[in-house]
Design a protein around this nucleic acid. Structure first.
Lengths: 153, 153
DNA sequence: CTATCTGCAAATAGTTTGCGTACTC
DNA sequence: GAGTACGCAAACTATTTGCAGATAG
């Protein structure tokens, strides 16, 4: 995950190498599920001149190149991560907002059931499933959610 | 699903009854997974003076009252439906954008697996799973997605 | 009659785009 | 040196808010 590594990745995908692109890839490797704003904020110290619109444009370029993907998690807008990461399903906590990842294999049963019922082929890696993380589920002061689980267990 | 029905529902939840609220509830019953804009558009003929901001405010009120819920499906923003509908999991097609519903029971296996691995308690009814509907999955002219399924089957 | 709701218009937040300069190859 | 990317500022879209008149209870 050195700067040189990112140069190779960019070149391999036919992208020009720029300071901004390497910095943004570095941020993606370092942060968990950053929003556009989070990436920009994270790089404020290292690259003070980095413009928010450049972050948007760069993410778009990196995504087109297949280096990066995004998922829609909650109202906070899309979050980005490296395409090379092991594909994972995003669990978004309705209480604290944290995002937990699980291997897409956990969704194998769902995929089979959905395919049988509707012919729909799901892409777990692109998806967000909402719910309550272990801590928030234990917190009875939170609104409705945890008190009335839809599925037993 | 008569107008009178919605009056009762509103009163039962401590809400004032207005033409706009009844109309919006009617639209929610009629449309599948409407966005705010879709509701507004649908009611254009019946309630030409209905303002978009009223739709936003009304949905917020109805949601606070527990009559309506929303789910985040794709980049198109939140979609709304009646809380009384059978809870369902939303499948959002990356190709054509259509939303398919399946019973939350399809996610029982996923819920158990995720709970065991991470303690996370999922809320399938609030969630969106992306993928490709039967038609789009068969369409080889579409980008990346359908050609490379992550999960076999 | 009082409290709340609605329509209108302006404000705000998030994202995209045009343009001239700076940088990569 | 040619073509692309960047920073800046303005445009655009989606959503929220303030206010005065209209409506429900």
């Amino acid at each position: 995950m050195t700067g040189g590594h990112w140069e190779l990745v960019l070149r391999d995908h036919g992208c020009r190498v720029t300071v901004q692109r390497v910095a943004i890839l570095g941020a993606l490797a370092e942060l968990r599920h950053p929003t556009v704003e989070a990436i920009h904020e994270h790089l404020r110290s290292a690259e003070p001149a980095l413009n928010l619109s450049t972050v948007y444009r760069t993410l778009s370029v990196l995504e087109d190149a297949g280096i990066v993907t995004h998922a829609h998690i909650g109202a906070r807008g899309p979050v980005y991560h490296l395409a090379a990461e092991a594909p994972h399903l995003h669990l978004s906590c309705l209480g604290c907002g944290r995002v937990v990842s699980v291997d897409v294999r956990a969704a194998a049963g769902l995929a089979a059931e959905v395919a049988a019922q509707t012919g729909f082929r799901i892409e777990p890696a692109h998806s967000a499933v909402y719910g309550w993380c272990a801590e928030c589920a234990a917190d009875t002061t939170l609104p409705a959610g945890p008190a009335a689980p839809i599925l037993g267990g």
